[in-house]
Simulated scan of single mutants.
Amino acid sequence: MSRPPRQLSRGLPLRAVAPNAVTALALCCGLTAIRYAISQNWEVAVTLILIAGVLDGIDGRIARMLHGESRFGAELDSLADAISFGVSPALIIYLWSLNALPRIGWLCSLVLAVFCALRLARFNANIDVTEQPHKSAGFLTGVPAPAAAAMALLPLFMWFWTSEPLFQSPYLVAPWVAMVALLMVSSVATYSWSSLKLRRNIRFEALAVVVIVGAAMVSAPWHTLSLLCIAYIVSLPFSITSYARVRRQRGSQPSPPLAAVPPTVDL
């Protein structure tokens, strides 16, 4: 009696490997940033964090484009974000400034890393939750991890192009880092850039702004990053006001049942 032919395993499809490879590359950038921070090569260390942020912004889009979304990818993305935007910036800031205050400085760095992990854990716990008022209204809950990492590194950006010792002072950096950590785990409504839609009559102007910002990043990266961080900080009161207005409008009319919201990469 002949045996039935063995069915060969087709293996893991490439569409699932590609986005996870991008996420792993972002994780490598975050870990390598720590190595350059130990050797006090601050600009390279910060640049690697920024590269990790760019890779974090495209891995989810690659997964959706290739239909390679998976729960494994979501968990790997959260792990990479916790290291690239929590542990690495915390260690960079500690080695650069906060080690002058070993106890308080390490406490603030620890809070930044742990609160980033807590934020990502909260995100993962709410992936399958249908009713999410902030997300259904086009907002995020708290400051996302990549934006929080950039905000925490703002004193370093300012120090790069001003060489002002004030920006390296642990008495300035420590409370700033603690505030950024609290914003990550807060319930503050922040803008979700993936949900913003442009009007047709201003798309050309928006493209021109993107070109100007890109040119500024090439010619004066630290000046531009400082201005972008300050602009994001200034936008927080407006996002809170906008969400409060949306909430009042929803309260004045019967709300339809909320549809399930797919997970996004804005952690």
Rank of each mutant, 00 (worst) to 15 (best):
D128T: 06
V173A: 06
V234D: 03
C229L: 10
L227W: 11
E69D: 09
A150E: 12
Q40D: 11
P5M: 12
S163D: 03
R103C: 10
F123A: 00
P263R: 08
T224L: 11
I127T: 09
R119Y: 09
V188H: 00
S192V: 09
S9Q: 14
L140Y: 03
A80Q: 00
P133Y: 01
L258S: 14
L207N: 11
S136Y: 12
E69G: 07
V213D: 12
A178K: 07
I58D: 01
R119G: 08
M179C: 15
F123C: 04
A52V: 02
R10W: 12
V177C: 01
W96T: 08
G60C: 00
I240C: 13
A149G: 00
M184W: 02
V44L: 03
K197A: 13
L267D: 04
A189P: 03
R61S: 05
I34T: 14
A82K: 00
V111C: 06
I202Q: 13
N20C: 06
S242I: 09
L154C: 04
R119W: 12
S192H: 09
I202K: 13
H134F: 05
A208K: 08
P254H: 02
A121V: 12
A174S: 05
R71E: 15
S252P: 00
R247M: 13
F160R: 14
P170Q: 02
N20T: 08
A113E: 04
L79K: 01
D128W: 05
A82P: 04
P4T: 13
D77P: 01
L118N: 12
P13H: 13
G68H: 04
R71F: 10
A145M: 04
E205I: 11
